[in-house]
Every structure is written in structure tokens, then in C-alpha cells.
Design a protein around this nucleic acid. Structure first.
Lengths: 150, 150
DNA sequence: CTGCATCCTCCTGGATACTG
DNA sequence: CAGTATCCAGGAGGATGCAG
């Protein structure tokens, strides 16, 4: 994550209409180790720093800070400081942030729904990592052409 | 990415029902630098290695191999080898892989639709990175309590 | 409580060279 | 063509200590 500018404008070959790269950029943003967990945890209510830290569990305060800053920079989260003693800082999702929860949850449902299938695939693969091999005969039979390529 | 076992079973505090962590796991899988681009490029037709490499553009052959192996391991992609000369290997999405395109595209549409908003937010943030600050008075007025925390 | 700064480690991923 | 193997730089991210 590190609060660096996402390279949406990096030197890219511009093959596809930019859509793919854009998706990639978004996933670079929310696909890091913690962003999604933070977004999910933020829900609808404002949350405080250590509250988030405890609830998420396993995140270092450094990464929570960086993640929140990143989300804040992208306009997904607002950070409200109350200069009380002890200090109090509320984080809450913006409308943009909330709108992101929708597609993320879709992905989440996919994940939950296909977790078993994925685990099964992994077991299978770990047992026999080799890809399926077709002899030339079968190949030409199935594909009707295995010839001339280069 | 590196063909390592995703740590879905890592020591996790088990706070949430596992849903969040599962989502996180999936994003760890497809949220890397290339997986989504590969999945998008694979589309419905079988594609060959260098074909993918060229079309994606910018990916090293090492990373394409690793990414494809990862996707294959998770059952999202099949790898079919035709032992011809020169060698031919077809990659294609499995049903599972195709089903993933759905939520991913949802995310992609979100990305496209809110790209401008995000860029605007970034500009704003880069100009004034500080979070909004409320004085104690305003704070207690808005939240009706700013007192005792710890 | 909230968070920045520092150090340090490991992984990600690019470049390159070599094999079948 | 389709990889594998190796080397290497840079970044992600944890641990710790300090500040407001």
C-alpha cells in the first residue's frame, strides 16, 4: 500500500481501451492486504482507530494508518479529528466508499460460494501439478488443426 | 503471487464469521498485479502463452507463468499442452474462472464509473492532506458526547 | 489514544540467460 | 514457442520507540 500514487498513468501499452488497466488500478488499491477488511469493518457507523485495529485483528497500527490514509486520499473514507484529550479520530465511509462495498460484497459472495471449489482445485493441483497433455492425434482430432503456428 | 499457498488458513483471530477473511483471501489471489488482466484477456477463447503475453503487454514471461500457474491451481484456468513442435499450450477459463469475471467486471464498472471522483479526491487530498478537525465545542454539539473514552 | 519515524525482513516482480 | 532458473532491486509490511 504505502501512500504512493497509484500508477494509473504509468507507461502502459494502451492495448485495451484502458478498462482493464483501470480495473487493475482499482484492485491495486483495494486488493492490498487490508483495505477490504477496513472497508468492511467501517460499515455505516463512524469507527475509531483502535476500535478498528482491535476488530480487524492482526493489523499493525502502521498498516492501519497507511491503509486509512490511502482510502482517505481516494475519497473513500473521511477522517474527523476531535482534539480532545485523549485524542479522538473518527473514520467513516464516504458515499463513494459505501458504493464500493456493493461490488466488493459481490466479490465476497463469489468467494464464499466458491471457496470449496477452489480448495478442491488446490488439492487436486497440489497432487498433480501438470497440465493436461494431449497427444498430436487426439489434439488434431479434437481441434481439427494442430499444425502450422509460426 | 509466487506459487505459494495462499494463507487462507493462517493464524487468524477469527473475529468475523470468516467472511471478511475469505474475501481478503480472494483478493489476495486476484488482487495481484496481473491476475485480473489475464482473466479479462482470456475471455471465452483458448489463448496461447505468447499471445497472452503480447496482448497484455508489459508483463514478463516469468510473471505470466506464475500468474497462470496460480490461476490454474485455484481451478480458474485450464492448461492444455500439445506436444507439437514448436510446443503449443492453450489456456482457457474454467466455468469457475468465467463465473469470477462477473463480480470482477462489476468492480471494473465501479472503477470506470468512479475514476473521475477518485482522481478528484486525490488532487484535493494532495493539496490538503489533513483530516477535518472539529473543535471540542462543535464536536460535542454534533455528537452530543466527546467525553470519557478510556 | 492516535500516529509518525525508524529499522529490518521478506516477498514481489523485472531482467536475463538457458532448456526442450 | 513455452517455459525454468537465477539474480537483483524495490516495495510491503511487522516491530519498536517516540510524540502530541
Amino acid at each position: 500500500m504505502e501512500p504512493e500514487h497509484i500508477d494509473v498513468t504509468e507507461p502502459m501499452p494502451l492495448h485495451c481501451p484502458g478498462a482493464c488497466k483501470t480495473v487493475s488500478g482499482v484492485l491495486a488499491r483495494i486488493g492490498d492486504k487490508w483495505s477490504v477488511l477496513v472497508i468492511m469493518q467501517l460499515g455505516d457507523e463512524p469507527r475509531r482507530f483502535n476500535d478498528l485495529k482491535r476488530t480487524i485483528g492482526g493489523i499493525s497500527q502502521r498498516m492501519l494508518t497507511l491503509t486509512l490514509r490511502g482510502l482517505e486520499r481516494d475519497g473513500l473514507v473521511t477522517r474527523t479529528i476531535y482534539p480532545t484529550i485523549p485524542p479522538r479520530v473518527d473514520y467513516r465511509l464516504t458515499d463513494l466508499g459505501r458504493s464500493l462495498r456493493q461490488p466488493v460484497q459481490a466479490l465476497g459472495q463469489w468467494a464464499m460460494g466458491n471457496l470449496k471449489a477452489i480448495e478442491r482445485a488446490r488439492s487436486t493441483y497440489d497432487a498433480a501439478p501438470a497440465g493436461q497433455i494431449f497427444g498430436v492425434a487426439e489434439a488434431s482430432g479434437r481441434r481439427d488443426d494442430t499444425h502450422a503456428i509460426g
